[in-house]
Design a protein around this nucleic acid. Structure first.
Length: 491
RNA sequence: CGGGGUAUAGCGCAGUCCGGUUAGCGCAUCUGGUUUGGGACCAGAGGGCCGCAGGUUCGAAUCCUGCUACCCCGACCA
């Protein structure tokens, strides 16, 4: 078989880059650091959107849309926030172009300079809280539970398709609450929602936890995150939910009258997941044959491929295939019948494997005569021939089976690659030679965290919610610690 | 923003050192035919301002100067 992808054992990052392009997910654009998301990749993103949107609405959130541009002055109101994002902002300074004096090109018209520069949003807290000021006056206006689907721009030095692009798509939730407790409850509810989604829809197990203070979102009092382990042993932050305290309410002077008639600042949360999840999908599940898409996420769940000689056979097989497609669709599945005559079956087999379609059905003359269908699974690459009468119920049950198998495999991988480490040498050895998650004691100081990062490139991914209390000594400083935290090298 | 590299057909490259026919090769594309149970084969065809701007020369993809873009390694990061 010809080699179409770089093997991941050979070069993991090359394999990733190849796969994203060859599976038709995205490509680099003419604009530095910005990607073109291709129809197949976008179809997967739309699946992610649809399910998350359903979950947000089911928990009482509504969608709205805020401007792409943020006046510079808004940005500087929350000190930590501006500090965190200032280094990666695209700025609009002019609003008009004109022909250059030599007539050869177009230049920015110096007379069209903006009074106040506009920042292309890297995140929308400031514009949204400036708006909330007018929306919130009473406890009766709360809670305000709003989400927006948008693009944002962060001027990254080095970019990689889906994992880090200068522009990316995401959703950002921005909620306002009357009490601290309620805001914290919302922050928790969302990180649980994300964890449920990533685990049960994308088949990727995650660790939920707190970010250390130095890894917190700029302007947050607390950041919760879900961390997933990729096949190369690196961690990927798959979603974050921030408890913003009253920081933004104070910065934008958003006060409300509470039930007792007293004026108080509003409590806030914000949370988001991005097209980075597309990267997680590839890095968590794909193999040397291509993508492996968990069935609940797959834009095409079942593909039917005819095998035939001559148009008479094709007609006969098509009739069977189309009938089967209808029955599968009635059972709630998304089905594609690929009857293109321009590609041979072998090509199609390989192509749908590359694209990660969970189940492939092949129908040839033999099957037509015998009333059978060949059923192939993408996750195991196994094939079986079963009776046409049973195929619908079989494929329906395969959807859950494949999802469970993919999740089980990823979970087993994570368990095999989670190391409990109690001293520095061991820590170094695991980080350098094995990779994966490392559960170790930390003295709780940012200095130690910083030192460990400088020495090993490993960071504290999260302080897991479920990390039990356990007396120990910090692997770096030897100072006492009462719980383990999760270290890893990360994307 | 520091260090290194690259720029030739849609993609991947050779040719550049040492200037000289009509700038090649693989993949992809198109046409015709044979094929179709794991990425088909044969025959033919189309496709290039050799990154941009100057210069040297009878002659420049090739030599010189300047510019621009991109890639890799660091610092920064969802």
């Amino acid at each position: 078989m010809a080699k179409f992808l770089t093997n991941k054992e050979e070069s993991f990052s090359q394999w990733y880059n190849d796969l994203v392009i060859k599976a038709d997910l995205a490509e680099n654009s003419a604009v530095r650091g910005c990607m073109v998301i291709k129809p197949y990749g976008y179809a997967i993103w739309e699946r992610i959107q649809a399910e998350l949107d359903r979950k947000f609405k089911a928990t009482g959130h509504v969608n709205a849309y805020f401007p792409l541009f943020i006046p510079k002055s808004f940005f500087s109101r929350e000190a930590a926030h501006v500090e965190g994002f200032a280094k990666e902002c695209a700025v609009v300074t002019h609003y008009r172009l004109k022909h250059s004096a030599d007539g050869k090109g177009i230049i920015v018209d110096p007379d069209a300079k903006l009074e106040e520069e506009l920042i292309v949003r890297p995140t929308s807290e400031t514009i949204i809280w400036n708006t909330y000021k007018d929306w919130i006056h009473s406890y009766r206006d709360l809670p305000l539970l709003i989400n927006q689907w948008a693009n944002v721009v962060r001027w990254e030095m080095r970019t990689r398709l889906f994992l880090r692009t200068a522009e990316f798509l995401w959703q950002e939730g921005h909620t306002a609450h009357a009490t601290r407790e309620e805001a914290i409850e919302e922050t928790t509810k969302i990180i649980d929602l994300y964890a449920d989604f990533v685990t049960n829809f994308m088949g990727i197990p995650v660790i939920k936890g707190y970010k250390s203070p130095s890894e917190r979102f700029a302007g947050a009092e607390d950041t919760f995150a879900i961390e997933a382990l990729m096949q190369d042993g690196k961690a990927l932050q798959a979603g974050t939910s921030h408890f913003l305290g009253q920081n933004f309410a104070k910065a934008f002077d958003v006060k409300f009258t509470n039930e007792k008639g007293k004026l108080d600042y509003v409590w806030a949360t914000s949370w988001g997941v991005s097209t980075r999840l597309m990267g997680a999908l590839v890095l968590a599940h794909a193999d040397n044959n291509g993508l492996v898409i968990p069935p609940r996420l797959a834009p095409i769940q079942v593909v039917i491929i005819p095998i035939y000689k001559g148009s008479d056979q094709l007609d006969k097989i098509s009739e069977i295939a189309i009938n089967l497609k209808i029955r599968l669709e009635e059972a709630g599945l998304t089905v594609k019948y690929d009857n293109r005559d321009t590609q041979k079956p072998g090509f199609k087999f390989a192509d749908y494997e590359l694209k990660g379609v969970p189940v492939r059905l092949a129908i040839g003359p033999r099957d037509a005569d015998q009333g059978t269908v060949e059923v192939a699974r993408r996750d195991t690459l196994t094939k079986e021939t079963i009776s046409r009468d049973n195929v619908v119920s079989h494929v329906v049950s395969l959807m859950d089976e494949i999802h469970n198998n993919i999740l089980k495999k990823a979970t087993a991988f994570r368990e095999e690659n989670t190391h409990y480490v109690d001293n520095w040498d061991e820590f170094l050895d695991v980080i350098e030679n094995k990779g994966g998650f490392v559960m170790a004691h930390w003295d709780g100081t940012p200095e130690t965290e910083e030192q460990i990062k400088n020495l090993t490139k490993a960071t504290i991914r999260v302080i897991p919610f479920d990390s039990p209390t356990e007396k120990g000594k910090c692997i770096y400083s030897g100072n006492p610690s009462d719980r383990r935290v999760l270290f890893a090298r990360a994307y």
